[in-house]
Design a protein around this nucleic acid. Structure first.
Lengths: 129, 129
DNA sequence: ACCCACATACGAAAGTTTTCGTTGACCATA
DNA sequence: TATGGTCAACGAAAACTTTCGTATGTGGGT
């Protein structure tokens, strides 16, 4: 049977993934401690979520140590692109341009930001040639 | 009491909102017929969702006709910006630039798209001056 | 050998989202 | 005035998400 593509992470799952991206492979304790700074959540809640994420294939688990070590299965950028693509389909009728335009108009991008983005456009046109 | 901000629409709710944006004020029947083209869903399912959306304040309902007429309470662009802002917080650490860059690199934007976006950048720098 | 701190596993409850069957009202028209 | 088609209302089930209490195991220090 064909492996299903990894499902879209839920809100709580995404907050855990962000920790894994930031810290690299981590134990439940480490993730929980970091999340606790900004968010109230019990240890077992985080544990349970990470177990579910393992079942879903969102993370890998290394059980060789007593405290299992979890790793995000998909990289940060890949997940971000997946989420963007999903939102593009669901809210922007599949138009990436509309999405970018809205993101730009809603953002308080600095002059430097605009320059960076402009360079990115240059690069894309370059590549297209 | 302060009105709560309208909650983030769920997936199914968003698909209904998109129909309302496209068609303008519509009855449940009209929304259902359109959704049925691309998606399997019972009539009463759509009805129930639209009733819930009324409770949540996502849509307004005109009950003067037998078939109630629903209208999206927030405009398409405003909702899109809300969703983008939400995703930016949850997945991009609050950085709009990162979001735009990812969206660009993931999109198969055409040459015309790039031109449009470039004009938008021009406009933004113009305004900033 | 005995605790104790800390780890996973399990299961259930609470909350939310999505689904739809059933009911009763309304209206056209035969 | 009966019949059939369309509608909103309601409630409940199913699916998914989030929460956490409790049980149980394990390893290290004393």
């Amino acid at each position: 049977m064909a492996d299903k593509p990894t499902p879209r992470p839920t809100d709580a799952e995404l907050s855990i993934l962000r920790v894994l991206w930031e810290r690299g492979p981590s134990t439940v304790r480490e993730v929980h401690d970091l999340l606790s700074l900004s968010h109230d959540s019990g240890y077992t809640t985080v544990l349970k979520l990470m177990q579910i994420m393992t079942d879903k294939g969102l993370v890998d688990r290394d059980e060789s140590q007593r405290a299992h070590v979890y790793t995000s299965r998909l990289g940060e950028q890949r997940t971000q692109r997946q989420l963007l693509g999903d939102l593009m389909e669901r809210a922007f009728g599949g138009s990436p341009t509309k999405l970018v335009m809205q993101a730009l108009s809603a953002s308080k991008a600095s002059a430097e930001d605009l320059t960076v983005i402009r360079r990115m456009l240059d690069q894309m046109e370059e590549d297209a040639r």
